[in-house]
Amino acid sequence: MEIEQEDLFAPRLVTTEELFAPGHRACIGCGEALAVRHVCKALGKNVIIVTATGCVEIISSLLPQTSWRVAWIHTLFENVSAVVSGVESGYKARKRKGKVPAAKDVKFVGFGGDGATTDIGLQALSGAMERGHDFLYCCFDNEAYMNTGIQRSSSTPYGAWTTTAPVGKKSIGQMTWKKNMPEIVVAHRIPYVATASPSYPFDLMAKVKRGLETKGPAYIQILSVCPTGWRCAPDLSIELGRLAAETGVFPLYEVINGEYRLTHDLPELKPIKEYLKLQGRFKHLTDDAIELIQTRVEEDYMKLKAKAGVK
């Protein structure tokens, strides 16, 4: 989705109001902070955001300051979806009892890293989706526990170096394949699931708006390039997000009421080597290992295309 003269149009298409205030403490080139900024623009002000422990929380809420210009709460690492359930239910009950005007427009949003989502908070998320609370969940997927120092998560890709999946004589780093979290969410049959990336800001914001307007649970997994943890140059965040989509490593799609749609269809995938070689976390990979990953990525992409009915 290239827009000609984007710099001229963008300010007209997107609000210049920053609900995630500048001055936060993220590393240079942090894709996660950028994603949060875009997401907040799309969310608008009528939201309550519940955030998990992790980089997003740490960079934004050092007492006595806050980056949040919207109603915001953080409590623990693994309970975002349960806290959102409570906030939403609290409003529901109070509206019904006339303690809050029934017409008051409030939306409920959960933010979690990949660790908070795919590992320690999976149960709470599954419970909240199954119960059908009206909320949007955004998973900021930087593919490891970054806040605690680049430890592997179940969302870390095969072959990546992390501090708990180190490269050694008997290890190539992460030895398991990235958990397919969006598919797990789809299995809950919730009305809206999507993947997105701040490298495609308009697509990201459109998806956030769609998720927000959905009645019932909605889930968006947002690839968030982390120069610190990925061992890449901080000025490559946008580029890497694009390459992740273009190589098929992180395909962009939506699942609306069970119907798959590729939002960024690629007739031809770029070789994943172009993506891997820019990141220090993959620099030890042999050609054989890269070949193995290439095969898997292609297989997965074909399956996804089939689901979306794309030839």
């Binding site: 709460i73 623990l76 309970n79 349960a82 409570g86 906030v87 609290g90 409003y91 009950a93 303690k99």
Partner: peptide
């Protein structure tokens, strides 16, 4: 956790 969320939202829990 849900009690915390609901209470923070102003509900009696």
């Amino acid at each position: 956790s849900a009690c915390v969320g609901a209470s923070a939202a102003g509900a009696r829990v």
